[in-house]
């Protein structure tokens, strides 16, 4: 089992529903967020490329945040999900410094928090909240180890990229770009 997310940039409209849905699902404190939306504009009027995409923790296979955590609060669970245990975290910030995506933040209560791939929902057989809400249905979630899963199919047939591959983290959030 290797969970991964695939996001189709050709369909994402940058509406940020994924951000609010995460907020209400995971009780993310106001002013913080586990996912966010970026916009990249290239070119000059009227020949312009616009890319919108929803970003979050990449649940990296080779996760520096897990490596550098001194207490083991940051750890990897079944399916490759990178998790943080609140009451093992001392709030040293090492994992935040280590993440090339700045995907983590200090919760106002002191511990470090980030996207969990909605682990609590997966357990109940549901999709992550952001995936489930996305009005353009541009987010897909599933098992990379299963060659017949929707995401495996998409990655087989569509051109894709990951963010900052040169950081060497082996991210598990993929972006379809063609």
């Amino acid at each position: 089992m290797r969970y991964a997310m695939v996001i189709d940039t050709l369909k994402c409209v940058g509406c940020s529903d994924c951000v609010v849905a995460c907020q209400t699902e995971n009780n993310v404190p106001m002013g913080y967020c586990r996912d966010w939306v970026t916009e990249t504009v290239n070119g000059a009027y009227p020949t312009i490329d616009l890319e919108l995409k929803s970003e979050r923790c990449n649940h990296c296979d080779n996760a520096p945040c897990v490596r550098c955590c001194p207490t083991g609060a940051s750890h990897i669970v079944e399916g490759g999900i990178v998790m943080v245990t609140e009451d093992e975290c001392i709030g040293c910030g090492a994992c935040i410094e280590s993440c090339p995506y700045d995907a983590r933040y200090q919760h106002p209560d002191g511990y470090v928090d980030k996207c969990t791939f909605c682990h609590h929902r997966l357990e109940k057989g549901k999709q992550p909240a952001c995936v489930e809400v996305c009005p353009t249905k541009c987010m897909y979630f599933g098992d990379l180890d299963d060659p017949t899963s929707e995401i495996s199919e998409l990655l087989k047939t569509r051109k894709h990229k990951v963010l900052a591959p040169e950081a060497g983290t082996s991210p598990n959030v993929y972006y379809l770009i063609k």
């Binding site: 083991g72 998790m83 245990t85 609140e86 093992e88 682990h119 609590h120 109940k124």
Partner: peptide, 19 residues
């Protein structure tokens, strides 16, 4: 020495949440 083991605390927490 628990290197990258699974974590019981969170699992408990999650169960509470789900409950």
């Amino acid at each position: 020495l628990n290197m990258f083991g699974a974590n019981t605390y969170l699992d408990d927490l999650v169960k509470q949440n789900v409950a």
